[in-house]
């Protein structure tokens, strides 16, 4: 392991050579918006919100999967990137039925916070209004496809932290859905351990605790990173 130095937004930053641009930026106190990235889970580079401009590279690179390099020059908040981020959030709001006023996660939603952060005050696209269902068969949790943004944080939490791999994605494109096991009702899933890590990981109101009503669902995504680190350091007291 060695240390490299790079410039993020013209600020000198040093980082471990196996760190990602996102980790280096966070350590230096530079904020980069993310949605599919969650500390403790593997990075997939899917939401494209953390795209940054790197001098000498003609493509935009996701900060969450791009490793730092000596002498790298990174820009994280140019007008072009701001424009793309606003478009991406707009596309998400138009894609499914994100109605904050009646959402369990209202006020505790990463998508909502992001819309405010990127300055998305209205949606210019036509709403798609897909007809989607809600799976309430599980005794403790519910899965509302109307709020899902397919970030797959729940899928990775279920697979990587809990090791159950109950959740996965079915289908492709706009028809993709989060499913439990072989597309069966969640309540009938023989693999689900009812651990609730998916509900901790969910950035929106898609996975929620049964019984929570509007604005009552508070997620705890930070607990997953805590679990992972504690496991690695064997911090359990029996």
């Amino acid at each position: 392991m060695s240390v490299v130095t790079l410039k993020i937004n013209d600020q000198d930053v040093s980082a471990r050579d196996d760190a990602t641009v996102l980790q280096a930026a966070r350590e230096a106190g530079i904020h980069i918006p993310v949605l599919c990235y969650l500390e403790g889970l593997s990075a997939v580079g899917a939401c494209r919100l953390c795209l940054v401009e790197v001098a000498g590279v003609n493509r935009l690179l996701p900060a969450c999967t791009t490793r730092v390099q000596e002498g790298m020059m990174v820009q994280t908040n140019t007008p072009r990137l701001q424009n793309y981020r606003r478009h991406i959030v707009e596309l998400l709001f138009a894609e499914r039925n994100h109605v904050c006023a009646v959402c369990v996660a209202n006020g505790n939603c990463e998508l909502q916070a992001l819309a405010i952060e990127v300055g998305m005050d209205h949606v210019r696209y036509d709403y798609m209004f897909p007809a989607l269902g809600v799976d309430l068969t599980h005794e403790r949790f519910g899965l509302d496809h109307n709020r899902c943004i397919l970030c797959t944080r729940c899928v990775r939490a279920c697979d990587e932290i809990e090791g159950a791999h109950t959740l996965d994605v079915l289908g492709r494109g706009a028809k993709a859905r989060i499913v439990t096991d072989l597309n069966m009702p969640w309540g009938e899933s023989p693999t689900c351990t009812s651990c609730g890590k998916c509900a901790m990981a969910c950035p929106t109101g898609a996975i929620f605790k049964q019984g929570s009503t509007v604005a009552e669902m508070v997620h705890h995504p930070e607990k997953l990173a805590f679990l992972k680190v504690a496991r690695e350091r064997r911090e359990w007291r029996v």
Binding site: V44, G45, A46, C47, R48, Y84, H87, I88, L91, L92, A94, E95, I149, L150, V169, G171, R172, G173, A174, K175, A176
Partner: peptide, 10 residues
């Protein structure tokens, strides 16, 4: 579209 990234899917 595979549906993984938002710009392509939506």
């Amino acid at each position: 579209s595979c549906g993984k990234c938002i710009p392509c899917r939506a």
